[in-house]
């Protein structure tokens, strides 16, 4: 996983509440067996006109946000399905950070596993940050300092689960970490459970 330290970018303002994973990446795109190449399908129902052409009104088609790495979103972002394809699609679009009042649990976890930082802030602050994006001003997201800083220097601190913070900062491989730190504890758990509930162990 690519480590996350600091990202400076004009944020994409997308303040819609309850954006679900079917909107982020529709089911027809889930037939891939790869993690990459999903940018094309990302937000397709709101990026595309009925005739199939790109909708110039859509924020995701505007040149100002072409290289944006920060998405400023509405409440309950990523609700719905567990598809990690939603996080892969955002990563493929170039996003490293999503700021919203709150996130659906599974989406937040998937984002984190793919090096995307999700930041929860008060809805009022989120609205102000979206306005920065509309004005074409960049934000600085600093994970080490746990702050989002505006062009005028105004700084908004955020909290984050310490485990997630460390994994993101160091780009840690979580599977390797678990095996390395907890291998014997897992084996011991299984030995005990095998005695208590032998029917859970087949062969």
């Amino acid at each position: 996983m690519e480590p996350f330290q600091r990202v400076t970018s004009i944020p994409t303002p997308f303040l819609r509440d309850n954006v679900d994973t079917d909107v982020i990446i529709p089911a027809e795109w889930l037939k891939t067996v790869s993690r990459s190449g999903l940018a094309k399908g990302a937000f397709s129902s709101i990026r595309t006109l009925e005739n199939g052409d790109p909708d110039p009104e859509s924020v995701f088609n505007q040149p100002a946000y072409k290289d944006s790495q920060i998405l400023v979103a509405g409440d309950n972002f990523g609700c719905g399905s567990s598809r990690e394809h939603a996080a892969w699609a955002l990563a493929d679009l170039g996003y490293r950070c999503v700021i919203a009042p709150d996130f659906a649990d599974i989406f937040a976890s998937n984002a984190f596993k793919n090096g995307i930082l999700t930041i929860s802030l008060d809805a009022d602050i989120v609205a102000e940050l979206a306005a920065e994006g509309e004005a074409g001003r960049a934000l600085v997201v600093d994970l080490d300092a746990q702050t989002v800083t505006r062009a005028d220097g105004q700084c908004h601190p955020f909290t984050l689960d310490p485990f997630r913070r460390r994994c993101l900062l160091e780009g840690l491989d979580e599977v390797g970490l678990t095996l390395q730190n907890h291998g014997p504890a897992i084996a011991a758990f299984e030995e005990r459970q095998k005695l208590e509930m032998p029917w859970l162990y087949r062969g």
Binding site: S81, E84, I106, N110, K113, N114, T178
Partner: peptide, 23 residues
């Protein structure tokens, strides 16, 4: 019982565990 993403599917396949924060 709860839904997980593909990275967690891999984590469970390899370690039979998940690192979770209690809800």
């Amino acid at each position: 019982a709860f839904g997980i993403g593909t990275s967690e599917v891999e984590h469970v396949l390899v370690t039979q565990t998940l690192t979770l924060k209690k809800s």
